[in-house]
């Protein structure tokens, strides 16, 4: 475990906690895309099947359980909680799941490291994670006014994969640990999707004005 990996995991954890905090305390999910949250729940459910088969470390297992638990609770809050669900803007959050899920499924069937169920699901989860933020980014673009917590959530989520890339570079040089090129490409795509958001996030921070995305 190096500092980049730890920082990446911590920003990932923080992003989820920020979102849960917002939903739980303000009882509102305004500006949050249910589509993105459902895709993340699917990402974790397909990637972390290995908690039943492999043991890596207590840290690893605990983190996996946290990500599974938090993603499914967020989905539950937006769909089922009697107050939170009222703040969900269904009309704006129109991105179609299958538009992302199907291509990722096909790509995983075509490009993978090993043809086993577990490995295919893992590869699928890597592809899906790379693009799962899209419904959320589209929603931000549509609503334009972004509250602080939602902005921080997206920022932390983007920071997480960028730190993972630094972690892969570091591991390559220190441990000669090779991350498969599938992971590299997906990770780079995932990080690049945030480039635009990062730009406006830092601009608003620098000028000390409220974050707004251009129409």
């Amino acid at each position: 475990m190096n500092i980049f990996r730890l920082a990446g995991d911590m920003t990932h954890l923080a992003s989820v906690l920020v979102l849960l905090l917002k939903i739980h305390t303000i009882k509102s999910c305004a500006g949050v895309s249910l589509k993105t949250q459902e895709l993340y729940a699917l990402v974790f459910a397909t990637r972390y099947l290995d908690i039943f088969t492999d043991f890596i470390s207590v840290y690893n297992t605990v983190m996996k359980l946290i990500f599974l638990g938090s993603s499914f609770s967020i989905v539950w809050y937006i769909r089922r909680h009697k107050i939170v669900r009222r703040s969900y803007d269904k009309e704006q959050d129109t991105f179609r799941h299958y538009f992302l899920v199907l291509p990722c499924l096909l790509l995983a069937l075509l490009i993978h490291e090993k043809f086993t169920v577990k490995e295919l699901l893992w590869t699928f989860s890597i592809y899906l994670e790379a693009v799962a933020i899209l419904p959320q980014l589209v929603l931000l673009q549509r609503t334009r006014n972004i509250d602080n917590l939602t902005g921080q959530y997206v920022f932390l989520l983007g920071a997480y994969r960028s730190l993972y890339i630094l972690n892969w570079i570091y591991r390559y040089f220190t441990e000669r640990h090779f991350v498969h090129w599938i992971t590299w490409i997906a990770g780079l795509v995932q990080t690049l999707l945030y480039a635009d958001f990062f730009y406006y996030y830092f601009e608003s921070w620098k000028n000390n004005v409220k974050l707004q995305l251009p129409a």
Binding site: R47, D54, M63, K64, F67, E119
Partner: peptide, 10 residues
């Protein structure tokens, strides 16, 4: 021996 890719990251 067969190399099984192990995913030790999250």
């Amino acid at each position: 021996k067969e190399k099984v890719p192990q995913h030790d990251e999250l």
